[in-house]
Structures are given as structure tokens and as C-alpha cells.
Simulated assay, not measured.
Amino acid sequence: MSQLFGEVAGGYDEARPGYPPEIVEAIRAYHGRGPGALVEVGAGTGLATRALLGLGAPMTCVEPDPRMARVLAARFPQVEVVNVPFEGWRPPPGGVPALACAMAWHWLDPATRNLRAHDALAPGGTLAVFAHRYDYVDPDDAAALRAAFESADPQPTYDRPESWFHDDVVASGLFTDVRSLPFRRAVPLDTAAYLRLVSTFSPQLKRPPELRERVLAAVGAAVDGFGGTVVMDLRTTLVLARRPA
């Protein structure tokens, strides 16, 4: 499942929204300065990499899908790209000062991800996990789009609680000073841009091709029906934690 997105590696970076610069400043402030080095887990095509480079630290990106890793390496030649799963990556002796994971924490082995992150960090090191939650500014748009998805594919999809990865890090008992910081933006998308975004979501990628087309036709018609633009309520949560010194 961690290699599900390689199919859309070429368009992923264009379709998915990036991250607010405030996230980088929040990581810097929490760490106390720019970290001496940073490892990003599940880096994909580099949406978060682009922001994290703002920390000014040498970066290593761990990405399991070779198709995503190729795009990442081409876009960011200054970054070391390691094409292995997080579970197969070995941190340097003594650990790293900071470890980040954007939109990929749920793809890591739930039985080991916190322990692996803890063990990869140097004592006192910073863990930064962040992710988007997609919603809609207009509740009528939200209702119309839910109806459109369900009309094409009535199979329900599961959304984790918004605080799930904060709770996951806390429940591990491995980290101290766990903080959760919210960021919120309104992001307008026209019909074509919205369909590109939907095409990168895992529920859509798991559908067979004919069903994908039905879903895109239904949700595209819904967006066209309320003017050809939908405004996303994009909520990004940053969870920061520290390996005890």
C-alpha cells in the first residue's frame, strides 16, 4: 500500500496542495534552532521536502516507491534520496537531530512506527508529523459532493479522527513535550483541479478503472453544478514531539 501513489507520481505534485511556511518556522522554534540534519520519511515527490528545505539543513528523504523516488530525486538533486521503506532504513550511528513525516504516518507499520522514529532520533531530537484534512468551506458544496461520491460508489470510506496521529504519538509513551498546532487555509479549485486532486486520493486509486471514471464524472458534474469552483477548507495539523535527552 505504501507504493499505491507511484501510479500518479507525475501529476501528484501538481494536484496536491503544499504546506504553509508557518510549519517550517514552528519546527525551527520547537527545535530551538535549525537542525543540523533532517530525515523525511515517506517523502513522495517532495511536496513537504520543498517546505522543509527552508530549515537549511542537509536532508535525507526515505521513499519506498521507486517511481515517486525518481521524481523526487529529479526535482531536488541537493537531497539524498533513499529508495527503501522506513522499516528497511537504518539511521546513522547516534541518530539524527530531526525526523519529519508528512501525509505518510498512516502508511508506516503501526506496530513499530513510533519506536523506529524514537530510535532514529538522537537524544533530544525532534519528531515532526503533519498532514492535511480536506473539507469544504460551503456546507452545501460538501453535501453535494458527498452525494456525488455516494451515487457513483456507495462503499463507505473511513476517515480517521483529526487528532489521530497526535494521539498515536502520545499513546506510544516514547516522546515528551508533544504538541499539536493547527493551520487553516481556504483553497479554491476549479473542476479540473479538483478532479486531479481526487485522482491522487487512495480510495480513488484503489477503485477499478471503470469505477474511477464514474466517480470523476459524478463529482465533476457536482462542481460544475455550483459554478465550476469548489473552495476547500484545508486544515493542516503539525504534531511535534521530542525524544527524551
Results as ranks from 00 to 15, higher is better:
82 V>I: 12
228 G>W: 06
92 P>E: 13
75 R>K: 15
103 M>G: 03
96 V>M: 07
31 H>A: 03
67 R>C: 09
111 A>Q: 14
105 W>H: 05
2 S>E: 14
21 P>G: 09
212 R>A: 00
83 N>L: 00
36 G>T: 13
96 V>S: 08
72 L>W: 01
60 T>D: 01
86 F>K: 00
40 E>L: 03
56 G>M: 04
50 R>I: 09
228 G>Y: 07
167 D>S: 04
72 L>F: 02
233 D>H: 08
221 A>D: 14
240 L>F: 02
231 V>M: 05
230 V>M: 01
240 L>G: 02
109 D>Q: 06
209 P>C: 01
226 F>P: 04
151 S>R: 13
185 R>Q: 15
183 F>W: 07
185 R>K: 11
32 G>S: 10
96 V>R: 09
50 R>L: 14
94 G>E: 08
85 P>S: 11
57 A>T: 13
28 R>E: 00
69 A>V: 02
172 S>V: 05
219 V>Y: 04
99 L>C: 09
207 R>E: 11
226 F>R: 12
87 E>M: 08
227 G>C: 04
238 L>A: 10
72 L>K: 03
197 L>R: 08
74 A>Y: 06
176 T>H: 10
14 E>N: 08
40 E>K: 02
40 E>P: 02
59 M>E: 11
208 P>S: 01
213 E>N: 05
37 A>F: 07
5 F>E: 04
174 L>Q: 03
196 R>F: 01
162 E>T: 12
177 D>A: 13
217 A>N: 05
218 A>N: 09
135 D>Q: 11
60 T>S: 04
127 L>K: 04
145 L>A: 01
45 T>K: 03
235 R>N: 10
19 Y>V: 00
113 R>F: 03
3 Q>Y: 04
174 L>E: 03
49 T>F: 00
68 M>L: 14
64 P>V: 08
180 S>K: 13
214 R>K: 13
217 A>C: 03
203 P>K: 02
135 D>L: 09
194 Y>H: 15
37 A>Q: 12
45 T>W: 02
201 F>G: 11
44 G>W: 05
172 S>N: 02
111 A>I: 06
190 D>R: 00
77 P>K: 01
134 Y>Q: 12
10 G>T: 06
18 G>R: 01
183 F>L: 10
239 V>C: 07
196 R>W: 00
160 R>V: 01
232 M>N: 13
23 I>V: 15
241 A>D: 07
94 G>M: 05
5 F>Y: 12
127 L>M: 02
27 I>R: 07
163 S>G: 14
38 L>E: 07
105 W>G: 00
48 A>F: 05
226 F>C: 08
24 V>G: 12
193 A>T: 10
8 V>S: 11
101 C>K: 05
104 A>I: 02
187 V>Y: 04
39 V>L: 08
244 P>I: 12
155 Q>A: 15
245 A>V: 14
167 D>E: 15
206 K>R: 15
36 G>R: 14
184 R>S: 14
151 S>I: 05
108 L>C: 10
92 P>M: 09
231 V>K: 03
205 L>D: 00
167 D>P: 03
